[in-house]
Design a protein around this nucleic acid. Structure first.
Lengths: 212, 212
DNA sequence: GTCTATACACCGATAGAC
DNA sequence: GTCTATCGGTGTATAGAC
């Protein structure tokens, strides 16, 4: 990998974070990389492909950096702790903001959509692994599908990030509400076998009611 | 309100939905409205102010259209039913997509951020009202703040919408996972007083553990 | 209030010298 | 692999005729 390529890739995520998908351009990225504008097209063909390459590189590095930490997780409580750390860290690095901008642009651009699908899949695979492991030990773990839960978690993070840029106070409030709900779920998940059976029975009622 | 103004406002949300924030322009909106491009600046001053006016008009109409329906809600189960209907309907109309694009653009544009804050506040106020009413009747209703919960709900909707545009199957899966979790919370909320006290006690442990 | 015309900046992308 | 120069197109915004 040449130096110019890496500089352009780094400048692309930087620009996505700073200028948003609406303000991203080959000229802007090249300037940020300290590189000639024509090199974007020489190395990547088009702006869309540049973004795609940058996002793949970025998400591979990010997800990979959590692998060891994720492998150590053995309990639901631990998962929640690491999850909070991850969210805080990725947000501070601006990686969640990059994902959010990518997702917004992906609604109208097929190349960006492909990049977004790749990035989401990488995160989801990683999250799904640990969720499945932790939920396997839990008596109520069979009630929710790990893959689906992983996708829900990703979607929630994206929504929170966009909200945060518009109203940081409201975003914190939303996170607190979600933390409370998660704590309630955690309690439900850690109930003894008697309460657990009661909850399971009740849940059948609710599900039947919702379906009917 | 002149005809040209209304045509431009309608064309703006339409363009936001169809072209996204990155593809929105005065020329594009004017063409969609069947109106001269210079009229955007005559009537609204700038593209940003046009978007702001369009979003305010759109969200006022949308939120207002649910007022009567929301006032009739009396129970948690009813709230969930209406909530699903609302999400489905607003999504089908493209209003959630418009909000998502607005939020994405708002990360870098102060005028758009103001519009986004206004729109979110209108939705949150409406949701908070009914959540507070329903939670008031519930023995565990004091555990979660209605305002915060309303903001969390809004954030989740935005995230799901963006995910849906990238991976509709994954988005449905995420919604199913969230529905399961909501059902579990509903069960917990409808437990009898004995289990309810047990849950409350457990919750204090969890909160203390999370804080410490 | 609406139109044409236009100034000026920026965009993606390419050709061709080096 | 990198550079300059350039094409054609689009963007915001304004001036001025009607």
């Amino acid at each position: 990998m040449t130096d110019t390529r890496t500089k352009l890739l780094a400048a692309t995520t930087e620009s996505l974070r700073h200028d948003g998908i609406a303000g991203l351009s080959a000229r802007g990225v090249a300037a940020r990389a300290g590189v000639n504008q024509a090199l974007v097209f020489y190395h990547f063909g088009s702006v869309g492909e540049l973004v795609q390459a940058a996002v793949r590189t970025s998400v591979d590095a990010s997800v990979g950096s959590y692998r060891a930490r994720f492998d150590e997780i053995g309990s639901l409580a631990e998962l929640l702790t690491v999850g909070r750390e991850l969210h805080e860290r990725e947000r501070a690095l601006g990686n969640v903001a990059v994902m959010a901008q990518l997702m917004a642009g992906a609604q109208q651009d097929l190349t960006l959509a492909e990049a977004a699908r790749y990035a989401m899949a990488r995160w989801n695979d990683q999250i799904e692994d640990v969720v499945r492991r932790v939920l396997g030990d839990n008596p109520l773990g069979d009630l929710v599908d790990p893959g689906r839960l992983a996708q829900a978690i990703s979607a929630v993070f994206i929504g929170l990030e966009l909200y945060d840029g518009v109203d940081p106070v409201g975003s914190s409030a939303a996170i607190e509400a979600l933390e409370t709900l998660v704590a309630m779920l955690q309690v439900a998940a850690e109930l003894g076998p008697v309460s657990s059976r009661a909850l399971r029975a009740k849940l059948r009622q609710v599900s039947a009611r919702a379906a009917g």
